[in-house]
Amino acid sequence: MDLALSIFFQVLVDGIVLGFMYALIALGYTMVYGVLEFINFAHSEIFVIGAFVGVEILLGFEASGSLAMLHPAFVLLVVLFAGMVISGLAAMALERVAYRPLRGAPRLVPLISAIGASFFLQDFIRLVESLWRNSFYLSYPTLPSLEKSLKIGSAVEVPIKSVLVIATALVMLLALHLFVNRTRVGIAIRAVAQDPETASLMGIPVDRIIALTFFVGGAMGGVAGVLFGLHYSLINPYSGFVPGLKAFTAAVLGGIGNIPGAVLGGIVLGLVEAFAASYLSILTNGAFGAEYKDVFAFAILILILIFRPKGLLGEKVREEGV
């Protein structure tokens, strides 16, 4: 039991970090679902694009020798901003090429196109990195100032990396909250989510609002990608699949289409996963271990969909009669 107690705080921090990461990715799923009632299956690759943009910029800084000279805060801002913008633009391009021509088609048609886009993008990233670096398994260069830990009290240490993830995620979530609730464009997004036809009658350019929603969701995913790279270091073109599926689970858990729900779902899922990974082996005397953490996430998804498909906070999207 001593071991269980001594790792408790560590696990809690890991779970919260994971949870905020899922929350940021889940926002992309949930916002797009809000306006289009459609699962953007390729969102996990938008997240990976963010991670790769981050590593490319950091490796560029490193190669030019300026990584050590520049202020770490500046480097982080540049990397996060670039990941955000490029992922957002990639999501917009994806919508334009693979989804917009299919608007109005039966439900499964855009979903299949999105699955195709997901697979295509995975190998496209692989192709680009193979031609450019002759390898597609990349690792983030270490930033010395991120390798330290904050000491709270005598026993508890929180790595700076975790603080960075949590702080960035909180800033992004606050910004999104203000954007969606306080700006005219944000109101337009919510109007389209409620009823696209009426919104268009009110003079809202629905197509542009949908593109913008993809940009905002993609930008959140891009930030999550950079944070993922900074925190876990190793990335490859296929690293998005599992986090993407879990973030989707988080979105469903919180109630898909519901922005606060996505955040809540992400954090709940992150905590469940972290605790399952660490405590399962202690509780079962080593019979089952951390390798079952994915099973937990998917089991939660299946159970939620069966017993409470509206999610924890309920569904805010419209019910379509057709």
Partner: peptide
């Protein structure tokens, strides 16, 4: 020509392209 570039390893791209193109042009 980079050694990493092997068309046989790009099955996913093939599947992906089939899915997208078929959905857009010939569902």
């Amino acid at each position: 020509i980079p050694a990493q570039f092997e068309p046989a390893k790009y099955e996913r791209m093939v599947f992906g392209l089939i899915l997208i193109l078929m959905m857009i042009f010939r569902p």
